[in-house]
Amino acid sequence: MSVDLATVKRVAHLARIAVSEEEAQRMMGELNGILGFVEQLGEVDVSGVEPMTSVMPMAMKERDDVVTDGSKADDVVANAPVSDRNFFLVPKVVE
């Protein structure tokens, strides 16, 4: 599998990363190098092997349903470039 320039630009757009023509060219090379390496891994027969989700066999930790957090709206919006009465303000988005 390999990617062409259009795919690189599309993926960059989906991730909201601005890339110049030159950068896109370079990334296409890098990505195809990575994909080539992954393809090599694909040669290993892993049929019947479950995908590993953790190095140590462990179950996902769960928490009790209790309110332990929140009530810190000032902290939450502290780094926002613009806020008003603890709302975040962003350039108008209407679909």
């Binding site: 928490r63 349903d65 209790v66 332990t68 957090d69 929140g70 009530s71 709206a73 939450v76 919006v77």
Partner: peptide, 24 residues
Amino acid sequence: SNSKLFSGASTAFGNSPNANVSLV
């Protein structure tokens, strides 16, 4: 539920803006 799916912030309806928000 009392708290959110992946954080301990409250799910109560109608609280003041960003009051039910954890850093998660």
